[in-house]
Amino acid sequence: MTVGLVRSKDLKAGVRRSAAAWPIGTLRYLVAAIFTGFCLFPFYVIVTTALKTETAIFAWPPVWNFKPTLQSFYNALFVFGGRSAIFYLINSVIISAVSTFVAVVLGAMAAYGFARFSFAGKRHLAFWILSTRFAPPVAFIVPIYLMVQKAGMLDSHIALILIYTAMNLSLVIWILRGFFSEIPIEIEEAALVDGYSRLQIFWRVALPLVRPGIVSTAILSAIFSWNEFLYAMVLTQSKAATLPVYLAGFSNSMGLAWGEYMAVGTMAVLPILIFTFALQKHLVRGLTFGAVK
């Protein structure tokens, strides 16, 4: 490891490349390839299981060559007893999209406030907001459930949207705060001199400058809302139920449902994979709240 470390520094400086490349370079490839395969293999299983026939799903040894069938997808979407998975899918899309929009709007405003204004208690407020990131949903589920119940909003889109907004606010605020601070202050000062109000400056000058930050926080927020299970499970049953609620109905006593659930799983995962890949650059920064860039 230590050897590798030093050598990598050499590489970075662009020296002695060829000298060290062989056995260690090969070893690196090998380890990296095995690890990548390990990371990707379950995706292969999800997709292929969704495409297999029932017999192939239960086969021992596992079947590697099979003729793909879309039957499971068809069943999950159009047959399969209860409400179609499409219904849950639509709820997921609506709730993720709206909550992300609200979180980004409110979050960007607050982030700008934190980046550009000073006021009493600002530090404490900022760090309190950061600490809400650590709030475990399971510790909040009892009071929040009773609050939503008393508000008469059980099984409603709006309840989940509000909760997911709150869940994502700390992320949006902290990441965008970093992006706003990186804008040279002179631009805004010039605008101020030109007679823009502070809110106009935020809206017309600063916001467009942090577009990449907004895109990546929006994607992250949307993914977190999309994946969220506990609140959805407890607060929605039917009208506003999202994909995780559908997946939670998986019952292995009805052993036949593997294909259908994997099909729904595929639908739940595919968009995320695309976004994750697109997000690459900002992902670490996002997931560590800007602590690591």
Partner: peptide, 15 residues
């Protein structure tokens, strides 16, 4: 390798 990080945990459990 980054792909697993943001996948829905329920699906991870399922597979």
């Amino acid at each position: 390798t980054l792909l697993p990080s943001l996948v829905m945990p329920l699906v991870v459990g399922l597979v």
